[in-house]
Nucleic acid binder design. Structure first.
Length: 723
DNA sequence: CGAAAGGCTCTTTTT
DNA sequence: GAGCCTTTCG
């Protein structure tokens, strides 16, 4: 098969330019993945480059897999020697192999978000700082920001410019000590330590530089400064560096992705060639135009000229609903219609939203109507309490110095080791600057605690030590069984709330573990722990199952669906209210919307709800400003904008009305509520089919009520409230 | 030590 | 609403 035959001229240029730095600016649906796969195939087949000399970095493991599959299809054979994966996965591999040079044991564990937060809380405690005053989250973010810019605790102190930064410095310093003492790294460390390793050990770097003759980086717009440095280091010898990205799809600046990397790239490699991929193969003309309308309102961007030979297609629907339930109901009804009337299948449809909390109403509706769906994200599998507990046991066995895993499970199930004892042990550990587990053992041996506590602790160490020795002999799934049985954890879960569901999750984890049973036990455990640390939700997304996909806009990047629903196009949701004060963030919200729309091949439904309950509190949000930027000729539904909403029957295709109370109320009227007593109406908010009224009750205070639901009657009073 | 209750805050996105 | 934390009581 001719690798170049099916490519358009721009794509072909991107594939054939194999020497020197190359920047590919690829619009959505422009065949980016295809170009990458073809480029690698071209390198291997036409240029005779060995796959082992190529590194391809992707944003998710799933993208890496997709790319490899495509490549193998093209070549008609497996390509095992190719290095591919996320920056994090690749760095983890490098550090396992070379970490010794940087003082990192090869059995290091990788801490996730929650683990990090635990370490920070512990640090605050040690430093006598009040977590209310210094939010652990904020500190975590500050530390991550520093690491993303390659700033070590030592470097950080030089830039300290405020009291908060002073605190950050102190926390950062101790945090890092605790991590290295426990032979642990966090996500940012994976990248930063790799860069430092290469910096400090030129001989190691040179080995990798010689190996990787060609380096490719996908989703370049979402790389941060560390990743950029790493990429530059690796490509330092041959300069055959190809980066692919789309500034308009940059949606991870909150994770310190830095769009300036694109500018730096052009500056650092003056001989760079730039290829624009502007022909879209994914979407209809209407969808592409809609997307362009939305993104064009961003001022800090380079205009692009996206075009497509695809058909015009149907118009984009803007659907207004009364509340999120109605919104969800519309989605489900519509999908049922698409399936019965337009030969769509469930897997063709995706519902996207800004925040995970929005999935709830949607899920309820899907369940009620019995429509299969798959939820990406939410409470993620590897974040579930029971899964993390079991992993914590495994981590502790693998690395008893793990200062986060030990406190996590030391008293789960309950074995009489409470907060008091734990604190004592932690103080001990800090005093002698030793890992917690060592402190525990010393405390037992030295007999410094009460006999009862000592005995309990001794029992625990025997348990752990036995598991450790078993871990050298048993296959991984067998080790897992041992843990469940001998720690009592299995029983504890089964007898607890939602026991069966939680047990199922553990069995699911065991299924994953079983895949490692063939390896030697040490390696199996290490590989398994690494795998569970570095999986993303999208990685697990099953394409085969016929079900509707529920997914956040962020996670939808890189995917495509014939039909896309975007829920919650309201001020405060999309754009999110946190972006209101910052034009830069607002532009990112817009890009997020753009990413969502450009996922669609055939049809787009933009949903907007008049009322929305999110996080317990209800609110009435105006329609999203992004809707305003879409040219009227692209939209099918008219009039929504001018408050005279389309009647429900029209939206649903079937009559559906809200019970409109016959009670006529206006501001100043007195009412009696069966529970709250008497009060006065202070505000009326008219909705479609219902009214939200605000009542100041004499006793119960100010309440917001829905007229249709509230047990209210109008009363006559000729006097004012008592003073 | 542990269970239960109450209060509090925080609600974005995730490798 | 939920999850986290603190307080209280047995």
């Amino acid at each position: 098969m001719d690798i170049l035959a099916t490519l358009n001229p721009a794509q072909r240029q991107a594939v054939e330019t194999v020497e020197g730095p190359l920047l590919i600016l690829a619009g959505p649906g422009s065949g980016k993945t295809r170009v990458i796969a073809h480029r690698i195939a071209y390198l291997i087949k036409v240029c005779g480059v060995s796959p082992s000399h190529i590194m391809a970095v992707t944003f998710t493991n799933k993208a890496a897999r997709a790319m490899t599959e495509r490549l193998e299809q093209l070549l008609g054979q497996a390509v095992e020697a190719l290095t591919s994966g996320t920056f994090h996965a690749i760095c983890a591999r490098v550090l396992r192999r070379e970490g010794k040079a940087a003082g990192l044991d090869s059995s290091f564990v990788i801490y996730d978000d929650e683990d990090q937060l635990n370490v920070i809380k512990q640090t605050l405690q040690e430093l006598n700082l009040d977590p209310k005053q210094y939010a652990p989250r904020a500190l975590q973010s500050a530390i991550s920001a520093a690491k993303s810019r390659l700033i070590s605790p030592k470097d950080y102190v030089r830039g300290v410019d405020s009291y908060f930064e002073e605190i950050v410095h102190r926390v950062y310093q101790r945090y890092q000590q605790l991590l290295s003492q426990g032979q642990a790294v966090d996500f940012d460390d994976l990248l930063m330590k790799a860069v430092q390793l290469f910096q400090d050990h030129p001989e190691v770097l040179s080995k990798y530089q010689s190996r990787y003759v060609h380096v490719l980086v996908d989703e370049f717009q979402d790389t941060n400064i560390v990743q950029y440095s790493l990429m530059k280091q690796l490509a330092g010898k041959y300069h055959n560096i190809c980066v692919v990205g789309d500034p308009d799809q940059s949606i991870y600046s909150w994770r310190f992705a830095d769009l300036r990397n694109i500018l730096s790239f052009e500056k650092d490699y003056p001989d760079v060639k730039v290829v624009l991929l502007e022909q879209n193969y994914r979407s209809t003309k209407t969808i592409l135009e809609t997307a362009s309308d939305i993104i064009s309102a961003n001022t800090r961007r380079k205009p692009k000229n996206l075009w497509t030979e695809n058909e015009t297609g149907s118009k984009v629907s803007i659907i207004e609903s009364y509340n999120e339930e109605e919104e969800a109901q519309f989605v489900v009804n519509k999908i049922e219609g698409l399936i019965s009337q337009e030969q769509m299948s469930l897997r063709d449809c995706a519902v996207m939203y800004r925040v995970n909390a929005q999935s709830r109403a949607l899920e309820e509706s899907f369940i009620r109507y019995g429509v299969p769906y798959k939820l990406v994200g939410g409470t993620r599998f590897y974040q579930r309490r029971e899964v993390k507990d079991v992993i914590a046991y495994l981590r502790l066995i693998h690395n008893p110095q793990d200062n986060v895993s030990l406190p996590r499970i030391i008293n789960i199930p309950k074995r009489g080791i409470g907060q008091t004892t734990l604190s004592q042990l932690q103080t001990w550990a800090r005093t002698y600057d030793i890992p917690l587990y060592d402190a525990l053992k010393q405390a037992v041996e030295g007999n410094v605690l009460s006999p009862r506590v000592t005995q309990t602790l001794a029992g625990f160490t025997v348990l752990v030590d036995r598991l450790i020795s078993q871990s050298h002999a048993l296959p991984l799934s067998g080790l897992l069984d041992e843990i469940l049985e001998h720690t009592g954890y299995g029983k504890y879960i089964l007898e607890g709330e939602q026991g069966e569901e939680r047990w199922e999750n553990i069995m699911e984890l065991k299924n994953v573990a079983r895949e490692y049973d063939g390896l030697n036990p040490e390696e199996a455990l290490a590989d398994f722990l690494e795998k569970v640390s570095l999986v993303a939700d999208v990685d697990e997304l099953e394409e085969k199952a016929d079900a509707v996909t529920l997914i956040t806009l962020h996670q939808s990047k890189g995917l495509e669906f014939p039909v896309v629903f975007i829920a919650g196009l309201e001020e405060g949701i999309l754009p999110h209210r946190r972006s209101f004060g910052d034009p830069g963030e607002m532009e990112e919200e817009r890009r997020l919307c753009y990413v969502g729309v450009t996922r669609a091949q055939k049809q787009v439904y933009l949903l907007r709800s008049y009322r929305r309950n999110l996080f317990g509190a209800g609110s009435a949000n105006p329609p999203s400003r992004f809707l305003q930027d879409i040219s009227p000729h692209l939209i099918s539904t008219k009039g929504l904008w001018e408050e005279k909403a389309a009647p429900l029957a029209e939206v649903y295709g079937q009559p559906l009305t809200y019970p409109l109370s016959t009670l006529e109320l206006k501001v100043g009227d007195y009412v009696r509520h069966s529970k709250f007593g008497d009060g006065i109406v202070t505000n009326c908010l008219a909705g479609r089919g219902d009214h939200e009224i605000t009542v100041a009750f004499e006793e119960a205070g100010v309440k917001k009520l829905l007229l249709s639901l509230a047990p209210l009657e109008k009363i006559e009073r000729d006097y004012d409230f008592p003073p």
